[in-house]
Design a protein around this nucleic acid. Structure first.
Lengths: 217, 217
DNA sequence: TTCTGTGAATTTATTCACAGCA
DNA sequence: TGCTGTGAATAAATTCACAGAA
């Protein structure tokens, strides 16, 4: 799903660069584990699959972190990127829909590490209400507005079927979230003041088959 | 995760257009349900969040399907796009990792509809082996090569932790898949003849917080 | 009219090539 | 020598604007 985004739109960092930042970030844990304090653009290229030229252009677009002949200071880069991506603080999230997808998000380790905290989960199924999974309590969807408001959650994750996605998104927006991450395979809309981003599994597969179809012929 | 792709690389359709195709495709089911046989670029814009100009440019890039003053024939467009995306046939897939994420993929309705069939699933956990979920049998990972080869599966889905992702991908490649969809938050590599695409949930969130951070200040 | 298709203009991103610092 | 930072060249994608078919 595309991000039909329009928003404050940074003047500072080009969109494509911003979307590559998470890749660099992820490669750092490996470098740090290896005890490396500096890395070259070449090293980053190998770790991320992004060309070395591009790496340098990207990093140069928000400052001069490298030392010629040496490379980049991993720690410093890591800190700067986290700041740019807004990861130097915790984000409070609401998860709506505790099916298997929702469950996998609850137990997904990567979130907590990056400061993403699911503070409350919601579901329609009465048999799930009240349970606590991975330390997160499950509430009835009816109480979504109330709970999200009370807990001041900022990001909403939509993990319900398409048919209910827009309604859930509306409720989240109404409750004051500033961004919505949508896993349902449909477009959802929200006021301009709220960011919406979609992740669509089918689209990813279709993208693959597009290339497969071509190479096949 | 970016797609460190390199491959046959179509000369026909620009990459960004191809990645928007799934969105158009998805909007068609709504139009067909409403009984509409033709739609304007404006209609498509509203349904997909893509600008009307862009819609026309996109569609024009692979043929003339519209009638001036009328619009586009939904059925015809649908058929053509499916063909372009390689959806006019079934794709046989292997799922590796039957945790919650794997489960959500197994039961995800969108796949079957688009011709994506998970023909076999694999897991390490002995207690899961032999079960059949959503009509799909679960095999031990040790038998991956054998089963994937025997069943001639073409696409592998990696839904295991990062630490095992590359090994699983290697086994899939060795067993003959032509493409790998990776859900682990790490880069995996494969020979050029095999397509790799990554889907990273954390990256999506980080992308959101990047914008949130900016609009905030 | 309505609505497409497309050339031309513009903006944006990638790639190249190399000057310059450690 | 090794590796960054960047200006210039190229390539690509988006936006605009309008001619022309139904």
């Amino acid at each position: 799903m595309p991000t039909p985004k329009k928003h404050p739109e940074s003047k500072t960092i080009p969109e494509p660069v911003a979307s590559r930042l998470p890749n660099y970030l992820r490669s750092f844990v490996g470098f740090e584990r290896e005890g490396r304090s500096t890395v070259s653009s070449q090293d980053l290229a190998e770790a991320t699959g992004i060309r070395a030229d591009q790496v340098r252009k990207d990093l140069a677009s928000f400052g001069s972190f490298g030392q010629r002949g040496i490379g980049y200071d991993v720690k410093k880069l890591d800190g700067t990127m986290r700041e740019i991506l807004g990861l130097n603080r915790a984000w409070r999230m609401a998860l709506v829909g505790v099916g298997h997808l929702g469950m996998s998000l609850l137990q997904y380790g990567g979130f907590a590490k990056a400061g993403f905290r699911i503070e409350a989960a919601f579901d329609q199924d009465p048999s799930k209400i009240g349970w606590e999974l991975e330390g997160v309590k499950i509430w009835p969807v009816q109480s979504l507005r109330q709970v999200v408001r009370d807990k001041q959650l900022e990001i909403g994750i939509v993990a319900v079927p398409s048919s209910r996605a827009q309604a859930v998104a509306d409720a989240l927006v109404d409750a004051g979230v500033k961004a919505v991450l949508n896993f349902a395979p449909c477009l959802i809309t929200a006021p301009n003041s709220v960011l919406v981003r979609g992740v669509d599994l089918s689209s990813e597969l279709e993208h693959l088959t597009y290339f497969l179809g071509k190479s096949k012929k």
